[in-house]
Design a protein around this nucleic acid. Structure first.
Lengths: 210, 210
DNA sequence: GGGAAAGCCCCCCGAAAGAGGGGATTGCAG
DNA sequence: CTGCAATCCCCTCTTTCGGGGGGCTTTCCC
């Protein structure tokens, strides 16, 4: 605690669509003299705008948000500012987007049900140039190589909406056999017994939108 | 702000499994002299224990929690203390449990993405003997009279886990025809095209656990 | 250049699902 | 007492699913 107190504080921006959670995070920062909250936003667009305008040292970013979602915002920010340090906050440990986020270049990944101290550790370690990945997420991320290709998600989302293979084929201008082929691939990937199970797994892992 | 400041404060307990969100709520209360946080917990069991021991004026309760879930905890508390005033906090507006919670006797219903002021309004209005139901939830609650009977949820959950009708029948000690009968009832209730669609709808409405 | 992975397409066939009917019993509320 | 909702059971028929094979390009990476 007695390091050089006169270093400039770590400038942090928080983007999350839950006001109460933001308040929680803000309250945590308020007790830390070396952390300065410089901006707050509630969607992906705000994240991008804030990054461009303020260049925070660390951006705390939720993945589930309206409008532009977290992964999208992150990808865009990182393509513009490759040096950006982003700490992803998420609700679910099994979230398939965890893998996406990590691949997209997040500096850290934290569950929303983390403790205050974990949040602070994560921020300081990232600011020192390190990374911080929650064990649960990490485990979940590689335990399940569960992700779907673009086409597979299309197919599965349509199935979740109550379409038969034939209807999916019509909707996507494919042959029914092709759709069946994707279904087989989906089952294999997710370890599902049937389409119903596949939808359940995909939802649990944040792989498709309902 | 200049009402009788010497009334005894409103004693509040918060039960939610997200530490950071709890911190947010706690931080909000800390700024309000007429509100006193007397207990904090992170699951349904804790909610029941806290209610028995401390009898808070208002219990702030999350619906999605490990172990004993929110609706369950609420039902038990209200059967023991019918005068209990419980404000339900939830993440999703389309949550089917909203209806359950309201029927079970919640005094209020608030989305987690509410503003600080809404939280305070809700607490004060409930403490005065009123109720507070978020419009979004309210709308969602009666728009969809979507709920399932106990047996129907059992069947659908097993279907979501990848079981065939035959397997479900075996698991529940029913005939396959009976399971098919439940399936038909489920489709009719939820307006689903098939089991896959039914699972998607049920999940979106918080009707089944994955 | 070789291989892997995604994206497409085709076959057969048995098992499962879903639509359509028909019942029965409880138990609770009006 | 009557109606209704929930729980349970049975039948037939057609469609769909999912497993098992087999292909073909293109793209991207080593």
């Amino acid at each position: 605690m007695e390091t050089s107190e006169f270093e400039s504080p770590i400038r942090i921006a928080v983007v999350d669509d839950h006001p109460l959670l933001r308040d929680g995070i803000i309250a945590v920062f308020a007790t830390q003299p070396d952390l300065e909250l410089i901006a707050v936003g509630e969607d992906g667009e705000a994240a991008i705008r804030i990054y461009r305008e303020k260049r925070p040292d660390i951006l705390l970013l939720d993945l589930q948000m309206p409008n532009v979602d977290g992964v999208e915002a992150m990808t865009r920010i990182l393509s513009e500012f490759p040096e950006a340090r982003i700490l992803v906050l998420t609700t679910y440990s099994g979230d398939g987007r965890a893998t996406q986020a990590i691949k997209a270049g997040a500096s850290g990944y934290l569950l929303k049900n983390s403790l205050r101290t974990e949040l602070l550790d994560a921020i300081r370690s990232i600011h020192r140039g390190g990374t911080h990945f929650d064990r649960q997420v990490f485990g979940a991320a590689d335990r399940e190589a569960k992700r779907l290709t673009a086409r597979e998600s299309d197919v599965l989302e349509l199935a979740a909406a109550g379409n038969s293979n034939k209807q999916i084929a019509a909707r996507l201008s494919l042959s029914e056999d092709t759709v069946k082929g994707y279904m087989k691939a989906i089952f294999a990937r997710l370890g599902a017994m049937d389409r119903t199970h596949a939808v359940a797994i995909a939802v649990r892992n944040g792989l498709i939108e309902l």
